[in-house]
Design a protein around this nucleic acid. Structure first.
Lengths: 294, 294
DNA sequence: GCAATTATGAAATATAAATTACATTGCGGG
DNA sequence: CCCGCAATGTAATTTATATTTCATAATTGC
């Protein structure tokens, strides 16, 4: 059995610890003891409960409760919420220190997370799964790309760029005739071309996403999903899922990692068509030049 | 060893994860979803409660409870206890071969360039220019966002996200009635509201970009440009230019850095409205939920 | 050393979490 | 098409957790 005042785990909550240490001298005796215990066991704290702490320290639960309120937390629940927030280093939104310009110092963590998210993408890029995904796209007769809400535009761009590397790529617009586009692209019903849907979705997930996924698996089409680390449903429909972290400490989620993943994907696919690619790009440039509608 | 799919926190529970993954294929649909969520969020798990998980995944609490029992845990409490144990007697450190990022040869250079491009964005983020840009956006009565070709979708998303942080943001669509939208937004012609255009463009630059820029400076509207390192014309019209490198060795140019810049911009603006932001976001979520058009 | 203040715990209460029992749905096999 | 089982949810119940109230003990200031 571990000692009551056991060692601390590698997990740290700097803000929380500092706050506690700062308050320590002014705290009543027993509450200080409790605080001390918390400092020594920050890493475990999320597993504890009011009583469990009070038992280990040898005080009554009320004391723990009171300490927390004195520190400005709203009870054990509140503490855990704040700790969790700190774990992801997101400022509580309502707290807003508007006057204070966000200093670059506060941004370094965000940058690290962004770097890390990018790194994870490149790792996935190196996995066999990636090869499967590229293969699937290359082999499909027709490719559809779709995305919703805050990543809809990204999906459009992705379709555009993918369309530069190979033919038969279409963006699927939600709502307006989505299924029409999906169902009758060509005129020949006879040959039944193989189809592949690339789906991009992040929290809060769109209902359309899982509906479309359902259709896909039912119809036997390939499905590739680019989503964030919170997504729990994608795996129900396909193994071809790329997870891009969106939690980087910004108020709104970050789309950088997903963008990177999509870029890499387009690039990989492009690699398969490298011979015909240059002429295709030239062709595209000619088109856009010709289209000077202004 | 950190798994590709795990989230960004360093907390890992190998045994637990393995167990879950192993069980995954044989699990009932919804329970599998819950399991999936748990795998993707191991680091958070100690903060969760039965209900909180069930809510996030969208199942009832009983399902979570049942999953746990099926896995051999004695409910949420039991799970946490075992997780805590695992956290505690996990081998000191797996320093060993962990450092080695598994990124294929040809990709490391690309990744470095991407990192570098990101770094440059964060540098600009720290410059006084950034403050000016944010200021300009915050002060403008009306904000327009536009982008062309391969970054058009990005501009749309940017407009959407910016629109979540403040009102009066519009995406300007090229070609179809662009100027109409631009010229008469409101009804009151009298007061002449201040306007700000955010323009996103990369090679090959669209003709529309400089034309619009011209209009802007002539009409006295603010102009902010996000572009790539090759852009020669933006400075002719405004000082408020953010340069994001797009040359990262991919066959098609990378849009990652621009995405990062736009994300940061939206975030900075959001910081100025932090008080009203939460309710605005809630409102937005309610809207999208209500709009279940399918 | 005596009031006034503060700290603390016991018991009661309120709130939340987890489990159980039962009802409903949906799906595959005959 | 119906049966029956497995999956899932609802509502009731039990259990745990947190908070309030109040009485008592400790401490402080004078």
């Amino acid at each position: 059995m571990r000692d009551i005042f056991s060692q601390s785990t590698p997990i740290v909550f700097p803000k929380f610890e500092e706050k506690l240490r700062g308050a320590l001298p002014d705290l009543p005796r027993l509450e200080a003891q409790v605080a001390q215990y918390m400092i020594l066991n920050v890493g475990d704290l999320s597993f504890e409960t009011g009583v469990s702490i009070s038992e280990k320290v040898g005080v009554s639960e009320v004391t723990v409760s009171r300490l927390l309120r004195r520190l400005g937390y709203r009870g054990m629940r509140g503490l855990k919420r704040e700790l969790r927030d700190e774990l992801f280093d997101r400022e509580p939104i309502q707290e807003g220190n508007e006057g204070a310009r966000e200093v670059p110092e506060g941004m370094t963590r965000n940058m690290d997370l962004e770097y890390q998210a990018l790194g994870e993408i490149y790792q996935q890029r190196a996995s066999p799964l990636w090869g499967q995904i590229v293969q699937t796209i290359v082999e499909a007769d027709r490719v559809y790309v779709t995305g919703f809400q805050a990543v809809r535009g990204m999906a459009e761009d992705c379709a555009r760029r993918l369309g530069m590397t190979r033919g038969n790529v279409r963006f699927l617009a939600a709502h307006d005739g989505m299924l029409t586009e999906w169902l009758k692209w060509g005129d020949e019903e006879s040959e039944k071309p193989s189809r592949c849907l690339i789906l991009i979705d992040v929290v809060p997930y769109a209902r359309e996403a899982s509906i479309l996924s359902g259709i896909c698996s039912k119809e036997g089409h390939s499905l590739i999903v680019f989503t964030d680390e919170m997504c729990h449903w994608a795996r129900n429909y396909t193994d071809l899922v790329i997870y891009a972290s969106t939690r980087t400490g910004l108020i709104l989620e970050s789309t950088v990692a997903i963008t990177a993943a999509l870029n890499l994907m387009v690039n990989s696919v492009a690699g398969h068509y490298s011979t015909s690619l240059t002429e295709r790009l030239d062709q595209w440039k000619t088109y856009t030049r010709a289209l000077r509608l202004f």
